[in-house]
Design a protein around this nucleic acid. Structure first.
Lengths: 238, 238
DNA sequence: GGATGTGAAGTAGTTCACAGCC
DNA sequence: GGCTGTGAACTACTTCACATCC
């Protein structure tokens, strides 16, 4: 099908992390029935340079049209293919506290290539309830087959949960618990700490000069709000 | 205070993002009453090489003892100083849905350098309730003075909330809404997209080669990794 | 001996600048 | 004209290797 223009090159890690950002912007534009976008626009919205956008997208294949930018439908298809959105991975979420609920209820988290197949919790009051159409099972029930487990339990329970996942043949863990997990070789653990971004922001506040934004994911100031425009000269922080 | 050994060099962005990870590990060790750690141990727990640990820590000053590693108390003090934990920034959290509650209830998010000064929500049923000791105010009340706003509202409300924050003089936004925010120059927006981590994991699953191993932190530079204060008493790290 | 701290080398990522095509 | 795609230059970060100090 669409793959004629696709190039299957190895993508760099930063590029992979930016693709979902581009995808989200492209979906916004599709929702607004805008049909084309150029690298400068996409870069501004994503908070990266136009060159970076072009370099990233060129890694997927020849998606653009010289002189005319990118067709958003083509972008959507090709980024989706690169991220594996045409396939589906089975995902279980373990721990239905506030964070687990937030992820399951989120419109953006478990869409696009991920299929939720099971929810688990330890609390007897929660087990048996239905969240977003999914029955919550007891943590000590046999675990459903899945490719990825999302761990949202308290730190003190995280290692035991990880052990159960590995025992159930799940070799990719997305760990939201602030806890070092010991897993056998061959199991991937991806840790997410929600406090890191705040810590980095605080560091830059205290030290005056952050690069405006400074992360991989930041929306740079948009030029269409000239009323508040501050000169880039001195201490734009605080 | 202890600053004699401190060096106030500009730290690289990846280093800044790793410091909270080191800090959390150090706090675990302090909780276990272990007094020294070496770069190899710290690196293994953090998921980075020993050399990277030494390079990062050397950027803070001469913290170690050749032949004997690092004193965890000194590490804790100096990393804390580098991250600005001795000062505090006032933070408001806007949007008390599951995600906002998860952040406020988290033991690791609003500690260390951040002081929660206000909660806001749009839902009349939530306004007036108390969450973790803090009264929830209506989103249209005048906003309390703060340095940082954490935005946890739905995407459709995020821009309006950002505008209110800017109007209230808040120039650092941590945005959890999957929405591009337009802000005037001089305001920093840090976007955190929880779905990105899962997307990256899925990409690696589909493409065979993912980074694997048991460390806390893998090579990804941003929006990644942990930091946290362990509960008192024992922590089962195997 | 043993582990830090660091110049030097290597690698990865970004930005420049422009050729190529619409 | 405008904008993409990409070699070349540049910058940033990591890793190597070892001198240095306890």
């Amino acid at each position: 099908m669409t793959s004629s223009r696709l190039r299957r090159r190895k993508l760099s890690e930063p590029t992979i992390a930016r693709l979902p950002v581009y995808q989200r912007i492209v979906e916004e534009w599709i929702g607004q029935e805008r049909s084309r976008i150029d690298s400068a626009q996409l870069g501004e919205l994503a908070g990266v340079t136009a060159t970076t956008v072009r370099r990233d997208l060129a890694g997927l294949g020849t998606l653009g049209t010289r002189g005319a930018g990118y067709d958003v439908a083509i972008l959507h298809t090709c980024i989706g293919e690169a991220l594996g959105h045409d396939q589906h991975c089975d995902v279980v979420v373990i721990g239905m506290g506030n964070l687990g609920r937030a992820l399951v209820n989120s419109s953006s988290f478990l869409t696009r290539g991920a299929r939720l197949v099971g929810l688990y919790d330890a609390d007897p009051l929660v087990v048996g309830t239905v969240i977003d159409g999914h029955l919550v099972r007891a943590i000590d029930e046999p675990m459903i087959a899945a490719s990825v487990a999302v761990i949202c339990v308290p730190a003190s329970a995280a290692q035991a949960v990880a052990d159960r996942c590995v025992g159930a043949g799940i070799h990719a863990l997305l760990n939201f618990a602030p806890q070092v997990l010991a897993v056998p070789l061959g199991t991937a653990v991806h840790d997410v700490d929600l406090s890191i971004e705040l810590q980095v922001l605080l560091y830059h506040l205290h030290n005056g000069t952050g690069p405006l934004g400074g992360g991989l994911l930041h929306a740079l100031a948009r030029a269409d709000a000239p009323a508040h425009r501050t000169p880039p000269a001195e201490t734009p922080w605080h």
